[in-house]
Simulated scan of single mutants.
Amino acid sequence: MSLQHLLEQQQSRLGALTRLLENEQEQLLSGHIDGPWLETIALEKSRLLTLLEETETTRSRIQHRLGYGSGGDAAQQAAHDAGCLETWRDTLEMAAHTARLNERNGHLVHARMAHNRQMLDYIHRIAEKSVYSPDGRATSAQRRLNTSA
């Protein structure tokens, strides 16, 4: 398998991952969260990340077999020698863009979780003031009101 072909494969998978991350971001920013859809996105992201890792492992193994060292400089030299330096640079740019999207979505998830936690805390505070317990029975405060009347 040529380096050019591996890089094109990486770009295809990065493109698919980027589209998924964009869909995830839209979902996280919307007023209504579709949990099953987010779960589907998470599973597909995991599958794509596994494929990307496999392709990267193959690329690295071929690079070493051809006598190039490890690291970015060696990879760039291998791409230059294989005549696909432009594709290598495009792949790096795509990977950086995808990483930024993923990081942004992580921040959105944390913000959503913090908001949900605040809402649950608020609901619990309100529920504690209720005259009824979770099982529907009158609380001791309500019973005291009934006996004093």
Rank of each mutant, 00 (worst) to 15 (best):
S60R: 10
L6H: 12
L29M: 06
S2R: 07
A82F: 02
Y68E: 04
I123H: 00
R137E: 01
S12Y: 07
A111H: 13
A79R: 02
Q9S: 15
G136Y: 01
M94S: 14
R112S: 12
G31I: 02
H97T: 15
Y68K: 06
D73T: 13
R47T: 05
V131C: 06
T57A: 14
Y68M: 04
T98R: 13
R89H: 11
G71K: 05
E26C: 05
S2H: 06
E86C: 02
N146G: 02
L48Y: 01
T58R: 13
I41V: 13
L48D: 00
Q118R: 14
G31A: 11
L6K: 09
L49I: 06
E53L: 11
A79F: 02
E86R: 09
D135L: 01
E103K: 14
M1N: 04
L51R: 12
L85G: 03
T40C: 05
L7G: 04
I123A: 00
H97K: 14
R125N: 11
H64M: 10
I62P: 01
L14Q: 10
L51G: 06
G83C: 07
S70K: 11
G72F: 14
E128V: 04
G69I: 10
R65K: 12
N105S: 07
E93M: 13
A82N: 02
N23I: 10
S130F: 05
G15P: 05
A141H: 09
Q9D: 11
E54K: 15
K129P: 03
A74C: 11
L49S: 06
L29P: 00
A96M: 11
R13D: 13
A149V: 15
Y132G: 00
L43N: 07
H115L: 10
A42D: 11
R59Y: 03
A96T: 12
R117Q: 15
S12P: 02
L20Q: 07
T147F: 10
E44Q: 15
E128I: 02
R100F: 11
S30P: 06
G35V: 13
D135G: 00
I126L: 12
G83F: 09
G136H: 00
W37G: 00
I41W: 00
R144C: 10
Q118S: 13
T58S: 06
E26M: 08
L51Q: 14
G71T: 04
R47S: 08
L28D: 08
H97P: 03
Q27G: 03
D121P: 00
A149W: 08
L85I: 10
M1L: 06
A95C: 03
E44I: 05
T50W: 05
Q118P: 04
M94Q: 15
M94N: 09
Q11T: 01
H124M: 02
H107G: 13
S70M: 07
D90Y: 01
S133N: 06
Y122A: 07
H110K: 15
E56M: 06
L52H: 05
L20E: 08
Q77Y: 03
A138C: 03
K45H: 03
A149M: 10
I62S: 04
A111N: 11
D34W: 08
